[in-house]
Computed example of a mutant assay.
Amino acid sequence: MIIPHLKNLINTYRPVLIFVGLFFSTYIAMSLLYGAYLNYYASATGTADPITNLVAIQSTALINSFGYDAQILPDTSAPHMKLIINDHYTANIIEGCNALSIIILFISFILAFAQGFKKTFLFLLAGTSLIYAVNLVRICILAIALYKYPNQSDFLHGVVFPGIIYGMVFLLWVLWIRVIKKQSK
């Protein structure tokens, strides 16, 4: 008696189960690959990975474009970059600052609701590019805010700026769902 009921539940909730399965399998696979990538660079070089380095370089260039004297220095004691603004040690740019974890979350959701290769690929390309660009601006503004208001670091780094990036990812997800709904009508 339980098996027919279970079969009925599975059939009823098949779309949800497929979404959850696709989302988590994509997220876990990409997270494991990303973790291996980070472990390789941390153990092989003891320095920050190339993507985190690139984000640090681009963020510093953006900060400099706002009229500050910003520079980055590799930290020999840990795999991150030290951000210096106007000769003042302001922050560390670490692996979490490169937005790859957030991009993995974004990609996993979009692939779980994939709608044709071309449309899904173009949305992934546009979305990841937007997340990356907004993350650079976010780091720039956060670094300047930390330089000017160091006593607000917990609030700025812990609440305001994560809210910006996660809020944008949520809005991209909502946009994707709306695109799918329009297509299905």
Rank of each mutant, 00 (worst) to 15 (best):
6 L>H: 08
6 L>P: 08
8 N>D: 14
11 N>L: 15
14 R>D: 10
14 R>A: 13
15 P>H: 03
21 G>S: 05
22 L>I: 12
22 L>M: 12
23 F>C: 03
25 S>C: 08
25 S>G: 05
26 T>C: 15
26 T>K: 07
30 M>F: 14
31 S>Y: 07
33 L>I: 14
38 L>Y: 03
39 N>T: 13
39 N>Q: 14
41 Y>V: 11
42 A>R: 15
43 S>A: 13
44 A>V: 11
45 T>Q: 07
46 G>T: 08
48 A>G: 02
49 D>R: 03
51 I>Q: 04
56 A>K: 00
64 N>L: 05
66 F>R: 10
71 Q>I: 13
71 Q>Y: 14
74 P>K: 11
76 T>D: 14
78 A>E: 11
78 A>T: 11
83 L>A: 07
84 I>T: 06
86 N>D: 15
88 H>T: 15
93 I>K: 07
95 E>C: 10
98 N>V: 01
99 A>S: 12
99 A>C: 09
102 I>Y: 08
102 I>L: 13
103 I>C: 04
103 I>F: 02
106 F>P: 00
110 I>M: 02
111 L>M: 10
111 L>E: 01
117 F>D: 09
120 T>K: 00
121 F>P: 04
122 L>N: 11
122 L>Q: 13
124 L>G: 00
126 A>Y: 10
129 S>V: 03
129 S>E: 04
130 L>Q: 02
131 I>E: 01
133 A>Y: 10
134 V>F: 12
135 N>F: 02
135 N>T: 00
135 N>M: 04
140 C>E: 10
140 C>I: 07
141 I>C: 06
141 I>A: 10
141 I>K: 03
142 L>C: 03
143 A>R: 03
143 A>N: 04
143 A>Y: 05
143 A>G: 11
148 K>C: 09
148 K>V: 11
150 P>A: 09
153 S>F: 07
154 D>H: 14
155 F>N: 03
165 I>G: 03
169 V>L: 02
169 V>K: 01
174 V>R: 07
175 L>N: 12
175 L>C: 15
179 V>W: 13
180 I>S: 08
182 K>W: 10
183 Q>V: 14
183 Q>D: 15
